[in-house]
């Protein structure tokens, strides 16, 4: 498994995005001047469309970071980590505690939550995951599920079911671009998430440690043969993945409320992103996160009721069926 290989179709994706943006701009021009039904629809929905594209893009960056952790774990350890969303919630509660008791700004608290989650992840891998590395896939799945259940209910016992939130000075700070409203904390979250994602990417591609991780992902035995300590690489990778999830949880805390079960939703989203980007593909997860953010925001704006997730799930099933190696992957049996 090549962790950091860019999806073979990246060029096409970039082209398609450029074409899509061009079409949208054209549509905007036509919509502003045209008289037909299509233009009418566009005029009435233009603001909603722009608004949801922006918010989808911004939250998509956070999904990218969370999914990056998940895909890293799958790529290196071959484990579907169903506790990933719960680790993200752990990051959220940590940020909440640090803010509520020590008045540490959530963005600043990243300095504490990232090492904390790194440690938690490494310990979980060392104590539990390490023992099931060769177990059948469904046993691995159930084990992480048990971990998720355990953590989720620990949160419930510790914090209760009521939602917790951080309300800081910039929680409701907004920026207007034209008539489109952009929430500032979401911008911060997006930027930090992308920076951290980029950092992990650089670590993977430019450092010896990253090279070791990629070697283990490609061929476990081969890596051991050339003297890489596979067990410790796996432990660190799980820690890194958990830290990515925790960081994603921390940065959304200023505009998000957390309950013990918040993790389930994020978990599913992260899985969809990972499958979309190709399981075990880091750049794929980054691109997939943005894409799923957009799909979610658009279906929230234009589908009725609680059908927001429905759009995501339909995408999920279609991807699983027709391109299980990922939308950006090489095709069916890659």
């Amino acid at each position: 498994m090549y962790l950091t290989r860019w999806p073979s179709s990246t060029r096409h994706i970039v082209k398609a995005t450029a074409v899509a943006i061009g079409l949208l701009m054209l549509l905007g021009l036509l919509g502003a001047t045209g008289r037909d039904a299509m233009s009418d629809w566009y005029r009435t929905h233009a603001l909603v469309l722009r608004q949801s594209l922006i918010s989808g893009l911004l939250i998509g960056g956070v999904y990218s970071l969370a999914a990056l952790g998940l895909t890293l774990i799958f790529g290196v350890l071959g484990i579907l980590n169903f506790a990933h969303g719960t680790l993200m919630v752990l990051g959220m509660y940590l940020a909440y505690l640090l803010f509520a008791h020590l008045h540490i700004d959530p963005y600043l608290s990243l300095v504490l939550t990232i090492p904390a989650l790194l440690l938690v992840g490494a310990v979980i891998q060392l104590v539990v995951i390490n023992r099931i590395m060769t177990a059948p896939a469904h046993n691995q799945l159930v084990l992480t599920l048990g971990l998720a259940l355990l953590l989720e209910n620990l949160f419930l016992a510790a914090f209760g079911a009521e939602p917790r939130a951080i309300r800081s000075s910039y929680t409701s700070a907004n920026l207007f671009v034209g008539d489109t409203l952009i929430s500032l904390p979401r911008v911060y979250a997006f930027v930090i998430a992308l920076l951290l994602g980029g950092l992990i990417y650089i670590v993977l591609t430019r450092t010896d440690f990253g090279k070791a991780i990629r070697a283990v992902a490609q061929d476990r035995e081969g890596a051991a043969l050339v003297g890489i300590d596979v067990a410790s690489v796996q432990m660190m990778t799980f820690g890194l993945g958990a830290a990515a999830a925790g960081a994603a949880g921390t940065v959304i805390m200023p505009f998000f409320t957390v309950t013990p079960t918040t993790g389930a939703t994020f978990n599913i989203t992260a899985f969809v992103v990972v499958v979309l980007g190709g399981m075990g593909n880091v750049p794929g997860a980054m691109l997939g996160g943005i894409l799923i953010g957009l799909v979610e925001a658009l279906s929230a704006a234009f589908l009725p009721g609680s059908a927001k997730q429905l759009g995501v799930f339909v995408v999920f099933i279609l991807i699983l069926l027709f391109r299980p190696s990922g939308l950006l992957g090489k095709g069916r049996n890659a």
């Binding site: 539990v128 159930v142 084990l143 599920l145 048990g146 971990l147 998720a148 259940l149 355990l150 953590l151 989720e152 209910n153 620990l154 949160f155 419930l156 016992a157 013990p260």
Partner: peptide, 12 residues
């Protein structure tokens, strides 16, 4: 959450 904790532990 106690029952959930127990269930999770048991699964693991």
């Amino acid at each position: 959450g106690l029952d959930g904790i127990l269930f999770g532990l048991l699964l693991v």
